[in-house]
Design a protein around this nucleic acid. Structure first.
Length: 105
DNA sequence: GGGGTGACCCAGT
DNA sequence: TACTGGGCCACCC
């Protein structure tokens, strides 16, 4: 089992978020799931916390929850950025079905 | 050590 | 579509 340190897990999360292509998004759960193999962890909630605390240096606006809703307090900013990147939106939320992306190993 | 909190998720109603 | 309840797990008193 991989068993990475908390710091390394943060690194992995941020790295993965950076790899999300323009015009696409990933949910917190998808990120947790994608990293589960190499990290030994799998908690969408923890990914959310990591983004809130350490997401400043990555395209965090490409990360939304599974219903396509955006983080509280950043809805406007997020919506703007996604719109200018060509991410499909349905009203005030992301069309997660069309925009979801996930890394291929 | 114990309890509250949160940029979550899913199934059920 | 909205709300509820249970599960989840690191962080902060």
């Amino acid at each position: 089992m991989a068993t990475v340190t908390p710091q390394e897990y943060v690194e992995e999360v941020l790295k993965l978020v950076e790899s999300i292509p323009e015009g696409r998004v990933m949910s917190y759960g998808a990120i947790a799931d994608a990293l589960a193999e190499r990290s030994g962890r799998n908690s969408a909630r923890q990914v959310g916390t990591i983004m809130a605390r350490h997401g400043g240096g990555v395209p965090w606006h490409r990360v939304v929850n599974s219903t396509g809703r955006m983080p509280p307090g950043h809805e406007q900013e997020t919506r703007q950025r996604l719109l200018s990147e060509g991410v499909p939106l349905r009203g005030e939320r992301v069309d997660i079905k069309r925009a979801s992306w996930q890394p291929d190993f």
